[in-house]
């Protein structure tokens, strides 16, 4: 086997395994660390596809930013950092049947399909081409993503702030 193929499988197993640990672990700190490995695994897959800019962004934004925020959030909340949360499982049998069927079907379909392969071109840098695409062919999605983030921020603020106790006060409820 080629080195690239070995690396691909290695990082894929890392990603999937870490994701499984993240979902099934009952300790929130363990979950957060497992998430970090999953995200690093995805970043490595990007590198294997010569998408260096994407890999760097993945590391900076997800591993460096969001994950640290999650860990800080866990540490700063008063419940204590190793809170075991109660997870209730309902409809275990129908859900298992459904997911096993779906998995079986997908694996069968994936292995029997001839995909439209594109051989990844070896590139020295991708940032320039990416920038041209974002300002050319993909300018509209690029801008719409910006609006989506604006809406998401407004929504997050709206959901996380508490209401002022007297509803008719003119003061902003952000101050509470």
């Amino acid at each position: 086997m080629e080195l690239t193929a070995i690396l691909f499988y290695l990082f894929s197993i890392l990603t999937v395994g870490a994701a499984a640990v993240m979902v099934f672990s009952r300790n929130i700190v363990h979950s957060a660390f497992a998430l970090m490995f999953a995200l690093v695994g995805v970043a490595s897959l990007y590198v294997l596809l010569y998408a260096d800019f994407l890999a760097a962004t993945q590391l900076l934004v997800y591993v460096g930013g969001i994950l640290i925020l999650i860990l800080f959030g866990v540490m700063l909340t008063t419940q204590g950092h190793n809170l075991n949360f109660k997870s209730v499982s309902v409809n275990l049998i129908p859900a298992s049947i459904l997911s096993v069927t779906a998995a079986g079907l997908l694996i069968f379909a994936f292995t029997t399909t001839a995909w439209a392969f594109i051989e990844p071109v070896e590139r020295s840098e991708t940032v320039y081409e990416l920038g041209m695409l974002l300002m050319g062919d993909y300018i509209l999605p690029f801008i719409i993503v910006g609006v989506l983030l604006l809406i998401a921020i407004i929504g997050a603020i709206l959901m996380s702030t508490r209401l002022a106790t007297t509803s008719d006060t003119t003061s902003s409820d952000l101050t509470e």
């Binding site: 407004i154 603020i157 702030t161 002022a164 509803s167 409820d173």
Partner: peptide, 15 residues
Amino acid sequence: AYKSRIGEYYMLLAG
């Protein structure tokens, strides 16, 4: 009862 945050309501409606 939500007059203090009605602006956000319309922002999201626009979105």
